[in-house]
Design a protein around this nucleic acid. Structure first.
Length: 226
DNA sequence: AAATGATCATGA
DNA sequence: TCATGATCATTT
């Protein structure tokens, strides 16, 4: 087995490739790709995701697009515990803090990113060294009507607060399934936003994240036998 | 113990 | 600086 040399030509091929990785440890996959596995993720936080991108043939880069634009599919790793519960929230995308007049949910980056996701769960309790963490069974997901409605409602509430100059009053507690949190290199990073009196202010950049209750439900639906 | 707010590496 | 890939680590 070896990493893909080309992007997958179809969604089916992508899913096949992803499911073929189930059961392998990150250390095994790194060795087969001639990559070094870090001893911990303190300084390598995105390593798992980049390893999977390599294996599945995603284009490297940081474009604000899906990982597989030809297929309209986004790739996301999801750290889980031994019971299959998410260990972390899931980053979705950067949140626009300016120029947001007229942005609708239908044209939002969040909706676009989550239109179709290839989820790759990884058993990743913090007491397991990265090399020994195992890939679980990948699955494809497209939001159903209820899920999209829940995402849309949170997104619209958060974006309205941003538009009204309330960005600094938004905490991670807002939103049932989608939350807004800082997303930056450090506390010194600043970007422009709308202030409470409509003026420009400088604030910490923000990102949208999926809360654990939401991704846990996705896992349950994906693997529930009915 | 869980969740929020903070942080790390990299590329364009 | 923005955006990608996320996990860390302090606070609750």
């Amino acid at each position: 087995m070896q990493p893909a040399s080309q992007p997958p030509q179809s969604v089916e091929q992508l899913l096949e490739r992803a499911q073929a990785l189930a059961g392998y440890s990150l250390g095994e996959l790194a060795d087969l790709a001639n990559l070094q596995t870090p001893a911990d993720f303190r300084r390598h936080k995105g390593w798992s995701g980049q390893l999977l991108e390599t294996w599945l043939g995603a284009e490297a880069g940081s474009k604000p697009e899906q990982d597989f634009p030809e297929l309209g599919v986004e790739l996301k790793t999801l750290p889980i515990d031994s019971q299959g519960k998410p260990l972390e929230t899931t980053y979705v995308c950067y949140a626009p803090l300016t120029g947001i007049a007229g942005i609708s949910w239908e044209h939002s980056n969040v909706k676009n990113k989550l239109a179709c996701v290839c989820w790759v769960p990884i058993e990743a309790c913090r007491d397991i060294p990265p090399a020994q963490r195992r890939v679980a069974s990948a699955f494809l997901w497209q939001p159903n009507a209820r899920q999209e409605q829940a995402l849309r409602q949170d997104w619209e509430e958060i974006m309205e607060m941003i538009a009204l100059g309330q960005v600094e009053n938004i905490t991670a507690r807002h939103g049932e399934v989608l939350q807004l949190r800082p997303k930056a290199a450090d506390g010194n990073a600043l970007t422009q936003a709308i202030g409470k009196d409509g003026q420009w202010i400088q604030t910490r950049p923000r990102g949208f994240y999926l809360k654990k209750n939401f991704t846990q439900a996705l896992l349950q639906h994906a693997f529930l036998d009915l």
